[in-house]
Each structure stands twice: as C-alpha cells, then as structure tokens.
Design a protein around this nucleic acid. Structure first.
Lengths: 150, 150
DNA sequence: TATTGTTATACTCTATAACTATA
DNA sequence: TATAGTTATAGAGTATAACAATA
C-alpha cells in the first residue's frame, strides 16, 4: 500500500487559495482514513458503514441513503461485512419487507478501536498547530459546515 | 447518483472535536469533488489524474507514486482515459523502458474547466464564512499542512 | 540483476434493470 | 400500485504475481 501524495492534486484542482487548502486537507484526511481502514482490511466504504452503524440500527435503504449509494450496492457491502462477522441482518419488526442492519459485538469492538485509531492517526497533522490555533480551526470548520444534528 | 450524508460518519469516526471537524470537512469536500467528477463521467481517481498531469508529463511509475497506487493499476487507468482521448502515452526519450503520460489537448481543456468548476462548487460551503474568516481558515489549514512545494 | 511497464487474475465497489415479497 | 431488498450483469478500481524489454 504505497503512500499517496496529497499535495499535488490539491494545488492543481483548487480554484482559489481557500479551495486549494480545503482540497489539500481533504486528501490528507482521507489518506489517513484510508490508511487506518487498510490496516484493518477495510475499505473507506466499509469504514463508513461501521461508523454510521456505531450507534444506530438502520434498514438497508436508510444505510444506502447515508452513504449516498444505491440499495443494490448495499447488498454486497453488507454481505461481505456480515461474512466477516462485523455486522448482522435481522428482519424488521414493523415492516415485513425491510431488513435491519446493525453491528455485531465484534463489529462494535472494531468500530471503537478504529475511532481511537483515527484520532491518533490525525494527531501528527493537527499537532502542527498550537492548541489555541486548533480551537480556532475547529470553530471555523464547524461554522463553515453548519450546525450539526446531534 | 444519490447525495451522501457527510455529517454522520464524521461525528462517529472522529476522536476529538478537531478531528471530527476535519473528517466532516473532508467528506463534504470529497462529495463536491466526486460530484464535479461524476458530472463529467470521471471518477475521483480520474479527476486526480487530470489534476496531476495538468502541468506535468510523468512516467507511469511516477504517476502511480503521486496517486499512491500500484503501477499495474495505472495501466487500466491510463488505458481508459486514453481511450476517451483525455491523455496520451509516448515512449520516454531517455529510457527505453519508460512511458510518458500527458494530457491531450481535450484533456487539458477538460482539466481547465474542472478547475473552475471545483472552485464554483465549493463556494456555497466556503461562503458560509465571512471573508476575514475565510482568510484565517486558509492560513490555519496551510500551516497545518506544512509548506507547499511550488 | 534491477527496473519499467504490461498482462493475467481475482476481488471490491458501484450502477442499472429485472425480479420477489410485502404493503 | 408502490416500496424493500435481492439477483443478474457489467464495468471501474485496486492489488499480487508473473512476464518481457531495457538498463
């Protein structure tokens, strides 16, 4: 798994300075997430599935909506994760057509470890800034991204 | 192409507040890049290839290094882009084993339009911040990401 | 011998279309 | 009829291993 070179496309894609920096930061962050995933034999999509289901039980269609994917794509995605024992399917109690998906104990365990791992893996980047700068960056990003649900 | 829901995994993956915000911003930015790519029938990887080659001529191996992919992966990637007339291959002048890759005129044209398109597509997000905040955000991101080459 | 690129192979990710079972 | 999920199919993206050509 060779390491990428996030800076280059960032510089070439972005329109202005801020867009450049955002694209650059996005590639750097995604590279970290991909690496954390790869170290656990998880694609970025599987990582997202674990993250989304960390505190939720969702039907296939709702999971597809969260990921921005087609429901037919979910079948294989969930199949593979289920085969690895990371999540489980169960028929919905309220709708005979629907299938709920949720983390298995092993999946929840892995999700928890990944959660911590991502934080540690991002630290070398974030610790380039002093604590006060980190707080300012967080505030600006949160303002830019709008109010969180939850 | 259904729209994703970047906030959720962000909240669930990140370790602390800043990591959360970075992951959230990365997913939001990647969603924009993916959308711009998809509107032009380009995957994120093909978008990166165009961006990287925008002002460069590289051999297959160097391109693979920039992307963080195996050289064998490049063959198919370049094949498909070449088949679409976006880039070209030529034998290296200095090394009989090597193959140079570079944008075709059409590829360069598309890359230029994508460049502008990305800037415009990111604007709704960045313009949530006042101009002074935008400058502060850019400065902080650039400090965090370290000095650019070029 | 080592390196460059391709080929062969296999698996994951993704979408579209057609199907089934339920609502 | 409409919705939930799966299956069938196809194509892109990715890696590993083996190979040919060149250095």
């Amino acid at each position: 798994m060779p390491a990428p070179h996030p800076t280059e496309h960032a510089r070439a894609i972005g329109q202005d300075g801020l867009a450049d920096a955002l694209v650059h930061a996005a590639f750097a962050t995604m590279a970290v997430l991909s690496k954390v995933g790869a170290e656990n034999d998880l694609s970025l999509t599987q990582l997202r599935v674990l993250a989304i289901l960390r505190d939720r039980r969702l039907r296939m269609t709702a999971l597809a909506d969260y990921l921005g994917l087609e429901k037919s794509t979910m079948t294989g995605l969930v199949d593979r994760a289920e085969r690895r024992g990371l999540l489980e399917r169960a028929p919905s109690a309220s709708d005979g057509r629907a299938v709920d998906v949720f983390l298995s104990p092993e999946g929840a365990d892995l999700a928890g470890r990944l959660y911590a791992h991502v934080g540690r893996s991002l630290a070398p980047m974030t610790s380039e800034l002093a604590p006060a700068e980190q707080r300012r960056l967080q505030t600006l990003l949160e303002r830019m991204l709008g109010p969180h649900e939850s």
